[in-house]
């Protein structure tokens, strides 16, 4: 079950130390990936996000393949 306590890192990784002026919604994924020693939070966050986006890319790829097929007029059933 989910632990009731809020995560409080004992160790601050570079993801933890980022200032507002140093990061945006667009640069955060890159900065997080380049951190060699992530804290527990940023480690698991990165891994879980990676699995999620991998799945999502697969869905996007299939969706693209499907629409391309339709556009080419080949209405074959899958």
């Amino acid at each position: 079950e989910t632990p009731a306590t809020t995560y409080k890192p004992t160790y601050r990784c570079s993801g933890c130390g980022l200032r507002f002026s140093e990061v945006t919604s667009r640069s955060f994924p890159v900065l997080q990936r380049s951190c060699p020693h992530s804290c527990d939070l940023h480690m698991v966050l990165q891994q879980a996000t990676h699995s999620y986006t991998k799945c999502l890319r697969e869905i996007c790829r299939r969706r693209d393949a499907h629409t391309t097929k339709q556009r080419e007029g080949g209405m074959q059933s899958v």
Binding site: T2, P3, A4, T5, T6, Y7, F28, D40, L41, V44, L45, Q47, A48, T49, S51, Y52
Partner: peptide, 19 residues
Amino acid sequence: VLPPVSVQEVVKAVVGRFI
């Protein structure tokens, strides 16, 4: 960071609540 719900669940199982 606010991740998708499925990611939140994985993170919470490991480190507890988000800040």
